[in-house]
Design a protein around this nucleic acid. Structure first.
Length: 228
DNA sequence: CCAGACGTTGTT
DNA sequence: GTCTGG
DNA sequence: CCAGACGTTGTT
DNA sequence: GTCTGG
Protein backbone atom coordinates (compact mmCIF):
# COMPACT_ATOMS: atom_id res chain seq x y z
CA UNK A 1 0.00 0.00 0.00
CA UNK A 2 1.13 3.53 0.44
CA UNK A 3 0.75 5.26 3.80
CA UNK A 4 3.73 7.59 3.80
CA UNK A 5 5.96 9.21 1.17
CA UNK A 6 8.71 11.74 0.71
CA UNK A 7 8.84 14.99 -1.24
CA UNK A 8 11.94 16.82 -0.11
CA UNK A 9 12.90 18.64 -3.29
CA UNK A 10 12.87 22.41 -3.54
CA UNK A 11 9.92 24.06 -5.25
CA UNK A 12 12.11 25.18 -8.17
CA UNK A 13 13.35 21.65 -8.79
CA UNK A 14 9.82 20.29 -8.81
CA UNK A 15 8.41 22.98 -11.08
CA UNK A 16 11.34 22.55 -13.43
CA UNK A 17 10.91 18.79 -13.61
CA UNK A 18 7.18 19.14 -14.20
CA UNK A 19 7.89 21.55 -17.03
CA UNK A 20 5.82 24.39 -15.60
CA UNK A 21 6.98 27.98 -15.74
CA UNK A 22 5.47 29.23 -12.49
CA UNK A 23 4.81 27.97 -8.96
CA UNK A 24 1.01 28.26 -9.11
CA UNK A 25 -0.56 25.86 -6.61
CA UNK A 26 2.66 25.53 -4.61
CA UNK A 27 2.69 28.89 -2.84
CA UNK A 28 2.65 27.25 0.59
CA UNK A 29 4.90 24.33 -0.31
CA UNK A 30 7.64 23.24 2.06
CA UNK A 31 9.90 20.24 1.41
CA UNK A 32 8.66 17.26 3.44
CA UNK A 33 10.59 14.00 3.73
CA UNK A 34 7.75 12.47 5.74
CA UNK A 35 4.40 13.20 4.12
CA UNK A 36 1.62 11.50 6.13
CA UNK A 37 -2.16 11.24 5.77
CA UNK A 38 -4.00 14.55 6.54
CA UNK A 39 -1.01 16.58 5.29
CA UNK A 40 -1.57 19.09 2.48
CA UNK A 41 0.74 18.32 -0.43
CA UNK A 42 0.91 19.24 -4.14
CA UNK A 43 -0.75 16.94 -6.70
CA UNK A 44 -1.20 17.18 -10.46
CA UNK A 45 -4.61 17.60 -12.06
CA UNK A 46 -5.75 18.35 -15.61
CA UNK A 47 -8.45 20.99 -15.86
CA UNK A 48 -8.20 22.40 -19.37
CA UNK A 49 -4.46 22.13 -18.83
CA UNK A 50 -2.14 20.41 -16.41
CA UNK A 51 -1.61 22.23 -13.15
CA UNK A 52 -0.74 21.74 -9.49
CA UNK A 53 -3.29 21.87 -6.67
CA UNK A 54 -2.33 21.49 -3.02
CA UNK A 55 -4.65 19.00 -1.34
CA UNK A 56 -5.16 17.09 1.88
CA UNK A 57 -4.15 13.43 1.74
CA UNK A 58 -7.14 11.30 2.79
CA UNK A 59 -10.21 11.60 0.61
CA UNK A 60 -13.26 13.30 2.11
CA UNK A 61 -16.24 12.39 -0.12
CA UNK A 62 -18.39 15.35 -1.16
CA UNK A 63 -21.33 13.90 0.86
CA UNK A 64 -19.37 13.26 4.07
CA UNK A 65 -20.92 14.75 7.21
CA UNK A 66 -17.56 15.53 8.77
CA UNK A 67 -13.96 15.55 7.70
CA UNK A 68 -13.10 12.61 9.97
CA UNK A 69 -15.04 10.26 7.73
CA UNK A 70 -12.35 10.54 5.09
CA UNK A 71 -9.38 10.27 7.39
CA UNK A 72 -8.96 6.61 6.54
CA UNK A 73 -9.54 6.86 2.81
CA UNK A 74 -5.87 7.29 2.09
CA UNK A 75 -5.84 4.46 -0.47
CA UNK A 76 -8.26 3.06 -3.03
CA UNK A 77 -7.88 -0.46 -4.45
CA UNK A 78 -7.69 -0.37 -8.23
CA UNK A 79 -9.62 -3.65 -8.49
CA UNK A 80 -12.73 -2.24 -6.80
CA UNK A 81 -12.49 1.47 -7.59
CA UNK A 82 -15.45 1.63 -9.95
CA UNK A 83 -17.82 0.00 -7.48
CA UNK A 84 -17.15 1.88 -4.26
CA UNK A 85 -19.51 4.75 -3.36
CA UNK A 86 -16.62 6.92 -2.19
CA UNK A 87 -14.70 6.58 -5.43
CA UNK A 88 -16.90 5.50 -8.33
CA UNK A 89 -18.18 8.95 -9.26
CA UNK A 90 -14.63 10.26 -9.40
CA UNK A 91 -13.43 7.68 -11.91
CA UNK A 92 -13.19 9.33 -15.30
CA UNK A 93 -13.84 12.72 -13.73
CA UNK A 94 -11.44 13.68 -10.97
CA UNK A 95 -8.13 11.97 -11.58
CA UNK A 96 -4.98 13.28 -9.95
CA UNK A 97 -1.34 12.29 -9.65
CA UNK A 98 0.50 12.50 -6.35
CA UNK A 99 4.00 13.93 -6.61
CA UNK A 100 6.75 12.27 -4.58
CA UNK A 101 10.40 11.35 -4.59
CA UNK A 102 9.52 7.90 -3.35
CA UNK A 103 7.19 6.10 -0.97
CA UNK A 104 7.70 4.21 2.28
CA UNK A 105 6.61 0.67 2.95
CA UNK A 106 6.97 -1.25 6.21
CA UNK A 107 8.12 -4.84 5.76
CA UNK A 108 7.10 -7.21 8.50
CA UNK A 109 9.66 -9.53 10.10
CA UNK A 110 7.69 -11.57 12.60
CA UNK A 111 6.82 -9.08 15.31
CA UNK A 112 8.97 -6.23 14.07
CA UNK A 113 8.76 -3.96 11.04
CA UNK A 114 11.42 -2.32 8.93
CA UNK A 115 10.67 0.72 6.80
CA UNK A 116 11.77 0.66 3.15
CA UNK A 117 12.02 3.52 0.70
CA UNK A 118 11.09 2.87 -2.93
CA UNK A 119 12.02 5.44 -5.56
CA UNK A 120 12.77 5.79 -9.28
CA UNK A 121 16.29 4.58 -10.08
CA UNK A 122 16.59 7.77 -12.15
CA UNK A 123 15.89 9.78 -8.99
CA UNK A 124 13.37 11.79 -10.89
CA UNK A 125 9.92 12.41 -9.41
CA UNK A 126 7.65 9.46 -8.61
CA UNK A 127 4.07 9.78 -9.84
CA UNK A 128 1.24 7.87 -8.19
CA UNK A 129 -2.28 7.65 -9.60
CA UNK A 130 -5.02 9.10 -7.43
CA UNK A 131 -8.55 10.45 -7.24
CA UNK A 132 -9.68 13.68 -5.64
CA UNK A 133 -12.88 15.34 -4.50
CA UNK A 134 -14.31 18.56 -3.08
CA UNK A 135 -16.01 18.71 0.31
CA UNK A 136 -18.14 21.60 1.54
CA UNK A 137 -17.37 21.75 5.24
CA UNK A 138 -19.92 23.41 7.50
CA UNK A 139 -17.81 26.44 8.34
CA UNK A 140 -15.60 26.42 5.30
CA UNK A 141 -15.56 29.34 2.94
CA UNK A 142 -13.90 27.24 0.32
CA UNK A 143 -14.46 23.54 -0.29
CA UNK A 144 -11.74 21.25 1.02
CA UNK A 145 -9.78 19.52 -1.72
CA UNK A 146 -8.59 16.04 -0.79
CA UNK A 147 -7.18 12.99 -2.56
CA UNK A 148 -6.54 9.27 -2.26
CA UNK A 149 -3.71 7.18 -3.70
CA UNK A 150 -4.65 4.15 -5.77
CA UNK A 151 -3.05 0.81 -4.85
CA UNK A 152 -2.48 -2.36 -6.89
CA UNK A 153 -0.92 -5.79 -6.47
CA UNK A 154 2.86 -5.42 -6.30
CA UNK A 155 5.27 -5.92 -9.17
CA UNK A 156 7.20 -9.18 -8.66
CA UNK A 157 10.32 -7.34 -7.50
CA UNK A 158 8.45 -5.74 -4.59
CA UNK A 159 6.21 -8.61 -3.54
CA UNK A 160 8.66 -9.55 -0.77
CA UNK A 161 8.24 -6.14 0.86
CA UNK A 162 4.46 -5.94 0.78
CA UNK A 163 1.40 -7.35 -0.94
CA UNK A 164 0.22 -3.97 -2.22
CA UNK A 165 1.93 -0.99 -3.83
CA UNK A 166 0.81 2.37 -5.21
CA UNK A 167 -0.14 2.58 -8.90
CA UNK A 168 3.09 4.15 -10.16
CA UNK A 169 2.95 6.06 -13.45
CA UNK A 170 5.75 7.08 -15.81
CA UNK A 171 5.46 10.73 -16.91
CA UNK A 172 3.82 9.60 -20.15
CA UNK A 173 1.26 7.39 -18.39
CA UNK A 174 0.65 10.09 -15.78
CA UNK A 175 -0.37 12.45 -18.57
CA UNK A 176 -2.76 9.82 -19.92
CA UNK A 177 -4.29 9.20 -16.49
CA UNK A 178 -4.83 12.93 -15.96
CA UNK A 179 -6.50 13.52 -19.30
CA UNK A 180 -9.93 12.29 -18.23
CA UNK A 181 -11.56 13.67 -21.36
CA UNK A 182 -9.87 10.98 -23.41
CA UNK A 183 -9.67 8.29 -20.75
CA UNK A 184 -12.00 5.32 -20.91
CA UNK A 185 -13.54 4.36 -17.56
CA UNK A 186 -13.64 0.74 -18.69
CA UNK A 187 -9.86 0.60 -19.08
CA UNK A 188 -9.28 1.91 -15.59
CA UNK A 189 -8.31 -1.20 -13.64
CA UNK A 190 -6.28 -2.64 -16.54
CA UNK A 191 -4.47 0.66 -17.08
CA UNK A 192 -3.59 1.03 -13.41
CA UNK A 193 -2.25 -2.52 -13.16
CA UNK A 194 -0.14 -2.38 -16.31
CA UNK A 195 3.62 -2.83 -16.08
CA UNK A 196 5.09 0.65 -15.87
CA UNK A 197 8.31 1.71 -17.56
CA UNK A 198 9.53 3.59 -14.50
CA UNK A 199 12.43 1.58 -13.05
CA UNK A 200 12.32 1.54 -9.25
CA UNK A 201 14.82 0.69 -6.53
CA UNK A 202 14.15 -0.21 -2.90
CA UNK A 203 16.25 -0.10 0.25
CA UNK A 204 15.77 -0.16 4.02
CA UNK A 205 15.77 3.11 5.94
CA UNK A 206 15.95 4.19 9.56
CA UNK A 207 12.91 3.88 11.85
CA UNK A 208 13.24 7.66 12.23
CA UNK A 209 10.55 7.81 9.58
CA UNK A 210 8.08 6.04 11.88
CA UNK A 211 7.30 9.29 13.66
CA UNK A 212 5.79 12.02 11.53
CA UNK A 213 7.65 14.52 13.68
CA UNK A 214 10.86 13.45 12.01
CA UNK A 215 11.22 15.29 8.74
CA UNK A 216 14.78 15.31 7.49
CA UNK A 217 16.85 13.84 4.64
CA UNK A 218 17.87 11.10 7.09
CA UNK A 219 14.41 9.59 6.53
CA UNK A 220 15.34 8.54 2.99
CA UNK A 221 18.97 7.58 3.56
CA UNK A 222 19.82 3.90 3.01
CA UNK A 223 20.74 1.83 6.06
CA UNK A 224 21.15 -1.35 4.00
CA UNK A 225 21.71 -2.59 0.45
CA UNK A 226 19.89 -0.98 -2.50
CA UNK A 227 17.90 -3.45 -4.59
CA UNK A 228 16.71 -2.91 -8.14
C1' DC B 1 -40.91 3.94 1.01
C1' DC B 2 -37.03 5.48 4.64
C1' DA B 3 -32.60 4.49 7.15
C1' DG B 4 -28.04 3.76 7.04
C1' DA B 5 -23.78 2.96 4.99
C1' DC B 6 -20.34 4.54 2.13
C1' DG B 7 -12.77 2.44 3.16
C1' DT B 8 -8.15 0.07 3.33
C1' DT B 9 -4.86 -2.28 5.86
C1' DG B 10 -3.20 -5.77 8.86
C1' DT B 11 -3.87 -9.08 12.39
C1' DT B 12 -5.81 -13.27 14.30
C1' DG C 1 -24.81 11.56 -3.97
C1' DT C 2 -26.19 6.72 -4.45
C1' DC C 3 -26.74 2.13 -3.24
C1' DT C 4 -28.33 -1.62 -0.05
C1' DG C 5 -31.23 -3.52 3.42
C1' DG C 6 -35.46 -3.77 5.71
C1' DC D 1 1.50 4.29 7.51
C1' DC D 2 2.91 4.87 12.86
C1' DA D 3 2.42 7.25 17.43
C1' DG D 4 -0.20 8.42 21.05
C1' DA D 5 -4.28 8.86 23.57
C1' DC D 6 -7.86 6.74 25.85
C1' DG D 7 -11.72 11.12 31.35
C1' DT D 8 -14.42 14.27 34.30
C1' DT D 9 -14.66 17.67 37.68
C1' DG D 10 -13.40 21.78 39.76
C1' DT D 11 -9.97 25.15 40.68
C1' DT D 12 -6.40 28.50 39.30
C1' DG E 1 -8.06 -2.96 22.04
C1' DT E 2 -9.34 0.91 19.17
C1' DC E 3 -9.67 5.43 17.68
C1' DT E 4 -7.57 9.96 16.44
C1' DG E 5 -4.02 12.88 14.76
C1' DG E 6 -0.20 13.80 11.87
Amino acid sequence: MCGRFSLGKDVDEIIDELGFDDTAGMEDYLPNFNVAPTVVTPVLVHEKRQRVLSMRWGLIPSWARDSKAGARLINARCETLTGKPSFRSLVGRRHCVAIAEGYYEWKRYGRSKTPYFIRPSSRRLLFMAGLWDLWDGPDQERPVQSFTIITRPPLDEFAAIHDRMPAVLSPERAARWLDTASFSRDDCTRFLQAEDTMALEAYPVSTLVNSVRNNSPACTEPVGPVRN
